[in-house]
Computed example of a mutant assay.
Amino acid sequence: MTDNKKEKFPKVQGGGSLILAWQIKNKTVLVVGGGEVAVGRILNLLDADAKVVVVCPSSGLSAEVRHRIDHNQVTYLDRAFEPSDLETLPPSNGPPDMVLTAVDDPAASTQIWKLCKQHRIPANIADVPPECDFYFGSVHRDGPLQIMVSTNGKGPRLAASIRKFIGKQLPPGVGDAIERIGELRAKLRKVAPDPEEGPKRMRWMIKVSDAYTWDDMSTLSDEDMDNILTFYRPNNVPDLDVLKAMRGGKTPEDIDVFDGSFGFSVGA
């Protein structure tokens, strides 16, 4: 390749983490410890619909973890960690898919870390970055919207400040808008279920997302979404005014909307 034809590619910036949305719904996660450090970990796991197993002597439980146990939100084992916990755990009687340690015992935590490596189970050892397969970031949550800020273990407090700043910049209702778009996508898959429709579905959903503001999307009713879907086959998206005019069972013909090569318009 000659110099004048060299392509420009992104510069590699080492030292980062691979930021992922880890799907752990219905997967078993072992939390070793039940004190204050475990509190946030357990809540994050429950928010992600994981099956949480807490191993900790009752004397070490915080009030919030006791609450989770009393309300059957977690499976509780009133004892210290045992190596066999990495092989079989209730209620599945299988090995955990993930392990989090939150105990004030560095030697014990390191031993658990080494055992997890032997069993190839991803683990997070609280406050010991070198012994973590993954980190917890500071997360902004608004319904289905999650924004994580990570400093790769270098400045958790600063990450929380940055997360709060980002959250304040977002308009109200953005979570509701995402929820409605997600429901529309699910409805579209029922209208056009064939795998061959995949590329068209994707392109049409992009057009829908670009056509309305976040405020518009957050106020879409079930009727509105059903009406939007009628425009999928001709591969068009109605203006918001047209969509509002269709409420109450009206069709495009009722409001003098025509389907032409230049799109849709409302007659005077």
Rank of each mutant, 00 (worst) to 15 (best):
K8H: 01
P10C: 05
G14L: 15
I19R: 13
Q23C: 02
Q23W: 14
N26S: 11
K27V: 11
V29A: 00
G34V: 10
C56D: 01
S59T: 03
L61I: 15
R66E: 15
V74D: 00
S84A: 02
S84D: 06
T88M: 09
S92L: 04
P96T: 00
A102H: 11
P106C: 05
A107W: 03
T110E: 09
I112Y: 07
Q118A: 06
I121L: 09
P122L: 07
A123Y: 07
A123R: 06
A126T: 10
C132D: 04
Y135R: 06
G143A: 00
V149L: 05
K154A: 10
K154V: 06
K154T: 12
P156E: 00
L158A: 15
A160V: 15
S161A: 01
I166S: 00
G167D: 11
P171Y: 09
P172W: 09
P172C: 04
D176S: 12
A177G: 13
R180W: 03
R185S: 10
R189D: 14
A192C: 12
M205N: 01
V208F: 13
A211T: 15
W214P: 10
E223Q: 01
D224N: 08
N227W: 08
R233W: 09
P234V: 12
V237H: 12
L240V: 08
K250P: 01
K250I: 08
K250H: 09
V266L: 09
